[in-house]
Design a protein around this nucleic acid. Structure first.
Lengths: 332, 332
DNA sequence: TGGCTTTGCGCAAAGCCTTGCGCAACGCCA
DNA sequence: TGGCGTTGCGCAAGGCTTTGCGCAAAGCCA
């Protein structure tokens, strides 16, 4: 930088201002500086800038690196929006475990990130949240949002979307609808469960709690839970799986049991995925606007970074129902 | 740090050495320093360290952020190994496009990364490779490896794995085996194609080039290519899809055409995925050791960073064939 | 005890940029 | 032409560590 300044006949500070556009520089001078930079092949040094500016233009993302299209799209949304805002993004894997999550977040904090987007793991309130309280760093919660918490958060309309799907199943004549609920402690799980109840209530259909089985949000849990449903004295005529993984497990169970979908059993599920179209029959799913959720999270984070005192905002984005054949409708 | 030094009655440099373990410090002194750090709540500042050390302990990864389990596992492998080595990882999305890739890599270079892992896009030799030549930064290529290039690279045994699957199909009596080849210009594509030829050759089965159709490595391309095969005057009795996406497209096409797998047509594919088990029938696939590939790549990178003059090494990891029903075998 | 190797630590430069403060030149108006 | 507001730029401090070099104390052997 010094060399550039010398070559352009200006001071280092002027070069800095040209590089960053941080204050008016006479066009002629600016041109001289830029020319000098080109000639000398000047390379900006972000690390030094970070140190000098006391800011590294970096935000962190704490998320589970699961092989799930939903997460990938979410990450893409966050990354895209961060890039647009001129922010770098560092991603850490929480392994969907609160203790790992806390360690990962501590790591991010040590790197002096200026903001954090977090998709919390079960139990985060006890380990990670305190960490965030100690270090006054702006953050926003995505996906597993928690209405009780007065923080910025972005998620999907779990309740409404689930209720809409259940409505549909009820409209098709089902009165015994099984549900594979997600792991307890996740707000997404309880909200989707609530949607189930809401739909039943407004249709005047009583809920048989035997039809609600915990699939632990995993593929294996889904498989087991599906078997439980099939072995009920009075099995359901339709099943709703509250996430991706459980859907996979459940479908495997149905297939193993020789249960034909949708002839013997109607099926619908939360979380859309590319393969949903390919199963026989095509799977009726709830598609989350993952990328939009991610983008919105970054926007909220920016707002908070600029205005730490702003009132917390909880955003819900609508989901889209991908209507295919597994619910028993003649055609999509 | 100055304060800590004062409190402990040592110099700043000693504090630094205690923090980093970069040279012997008498146990008594070390204890004093650590105590002072605790009392004062000293927080290390990685950015300042990067500046001072002229190194930021960061490596970059340029990869397409596609929603594909293979990539996710690869990233996990790289990230895990990097963490183990005490390196930070910055990921950029190439969007699988050479020009974006070049920009992304330039960005990484601007961030003064010390090493790069790259899963190159088609056409990278013309735009990204020159960039890498200009800036003498250690790098290793993963996945799309290029035997002509004298650089460190890690990939799977595409040829052998493909040949093994084709062997199997031939052993089952198929002599007209269609193949959905990947996009031209990708080494993975040509290697898998070569595997196809090798298997035919050693079995003495002639190859009908009409059976080789370009699926462009995409889902849509796979769909179209599959249709082409079905519409052949003399259609194949078995089909091998050279990647994940094309498999999805092809299966959709077969289903739309009313072709039953494996009754009417045997199917096998490169790239394993969680859902492979759930299709009716289960899909016979080639599973890549993605995580291992990623880990190995980081190891090669470390070696090169430590010893820039070392001879380039090309590593091939074996694939595993996941034998399911779609190939027409009675049972797995 | 004298000379030599370890061991332990401090000094100060270096790394690269940002930014508050202040000064000078310039233009405009009365 | 004097006074005042802009515009344009430089000075120098500041941010936090790392590390080469050199010095002193301690340990060891003859």
């Amino acid at each position: 930088m010094t060399e550039v300044a010398r070559a352009a006949g200006v001071s280092v500070s002027t070069v800095s201002h040209v590089v960053n556009g941080t204050r008016l520089v006479a066009p002629k001078t600016r041109e001289r500086v830029q020319h000098a930079m080109r000639i000398l092949g000047y390379q900006h040094h972000p690390t030094a800038r970070s140190l000098a500016a006391g800011s590294n233009q970096t935000i962190g993302l704490a998320i589970t690196a699961a092989s799930n299209p939903y997460w990938v799209e979410l990450i893409q949304g966050i990354d895209g929006e961060a890039t647009r805002a001129g922010l770098n993004l560092i991603i850490v894997d929480t392994r969907d475990d609160a203790r790992h999550e806390a360690a990962a977040v501590a790591n991010l904090i040590a790197h002096h990130i200026e903001g954090l987007v977090i998709a919390p793991a079960v139990g985060w309130r006890d380990v990670t949240l305190p960490l965030l309280r100690d270090h006054p760093i702006p953050y926003v919660v995505v996906d597993r949002i928690d209405p009780d918490l007065r923080v910025d958060q972005v998620g999907v309309e779990n309740e409404a979307a689930t209720a809409a799907v259940i409505d549909h199943l009820i409209a098709l004549g089902h009165t015994r609808i099984g549900m594979l609920t997600g792991i307890r402690g996740l707000s997404t799980s309880s909200e989707r469960l609530r949607g189930y109840h809401v739909a039943h209530q407004r249709a005047g259909v009583p809920v048989d709690v035997d039809l609600l089985v915990d699939g632990l949000s995993t593929s294996d849990g889904g498989r087991r839970a599906a078997w439980e449903l099939l072995e009920l004295r009075e099995p359901p005529t339709a099943v709703f799986a509250a996430n991706n993984n459980m859907t996979i497990g459940a479908l495997a169970a149905f297939r193993a049991a020789g249960v034909k979908v949708p002839r013997d059993l109607a099926v619908a599920a939360f979380d859309n995925f590319a393969w949903a179209d390919l199963f026989s029959p095509g799977l009726t799913t709830v598609a989350q606007p993952s990328a939009a959720i991610g983008a919105r999270a970054v926007q909220l984070l920016l707002r908070r970074m600029n205005d730490p005192g702003a009132p917390p905002q909880a955003v819900r984005l609508p989901a889209e129902i991908m209507h295919r054949e597994s619910c028993g409708c003649p055609t999509r």
